[in-house]
């Protein structure tokens, strides 16, 4: 690798970190909650941190510690954790056309969370191929470390933090929907896409508002995709 390529990789890494900064507003408060809840469920602070380090999947971690605390059989805990994470199956294939042949990509997939996928799906196609690995490494590592760091904060000092700044804990998570708005806005390019995306937004919102956040994303995405293909086939039939 020549000096120019190394320099481009380094710049891309910084660019990835910069692009992932909005994720912190959503990750850190939720990770603090996870650390706190894991502690209250009987896990030590270090156990909570290790769970965040190796599983690294928000909703399923809450489910994992909650089910263990309630005395559920461990095989069921594992099955439910994996079922919640099953939506991740479609993320990497969606990014594959923009990933280079480098073997590091396989290990970096550990950091392919919902939010990192959303960010990468928008940013990777716009980057030259020489910068993609560096960009993804920077973005993924910042998100991962913020999740683990937030868990540590929550596990060691969660009660004090949420007691001292309750409003901050309420406001910062809005960074996630704000980021999704920015990532999604350029995709409203036609009535077809507007209908499909609008359907997915509304259905997910209704499910989540009615206490079903875990099924909200896969169900809403499938309905949104169905709207897309039905409308597309109707348009073709009319033509």
């Amino acid at each position: 690798m020549n000096d120019q390529a190394i320099s481009a990789g380094g710049r891309a890494w910084v660019k990835g970190v910069r692009d992932a900064i909005p994720l912190l507003g959503g990750y850190i408060p939720v990770a603090i909650s996870f650390g706190l809840i894991a502690n209250q469920s009987g896990f030590s602070s270090w156990e909570a941190i290790i769970i965040s380090l190796v599983i690294y999947a928000g909703a399923s971690q809450f489910l994992f510690v909650g089910m263990v605390a309630s005395g559920a059989p461990l095989w069921l805990v594992v099955v439910m954790t994996l079922l919640i994470n099953a939506r991740h199956l479609v993320y990497a294939p969606n990014l594959a056309p923009w990933l280079t042949g480098n073997r590091w990509w396989f290990w970096l997939m550990h950091g392919l969370t919902d939010q990192v996928f959303a960010l990468a799906h928008t940013r990777l196609p716009a980057l030259p191929s020489s910068e993609r690995l560096g960009w993804f490494t920077g973005a993924m590592l910042l998100a991962w470390f913020s999740w683990v760091g937030g868990t540590a904060l929550g596990a060691f000092a969660g009660q004090e933090l949420t007691g001292r700044w309750p409003l901050l804990n309420d406001v910062m998570p809005f960074a996630l929907p704000a980021l999704f708005v920015v990532l999604l806005a350029p995709r409203f390019t036609s009535w077809l896409w507007a209908a499909a995306l609008g359907c997915a937004i509304v259905v997910a919102l209704l499910f989540a508002a009615n206490g079903l956040p875990n099924v909200a994303i896969p169900v809403a995405a499938l309905l949104g995709a169905a709207v897309f293909f039905v409308m597309q086939s109707n348009t073709r039939a009319e033509v």
Partner: peptide, 9 residues
């Protein structure tokens, strides 16, 4: 894209 829309919702 519809997965991202569902995450937004």
């Amino acid at each position: 894209p519809v997965m991202i829309a569902a995450m937004l919702g």
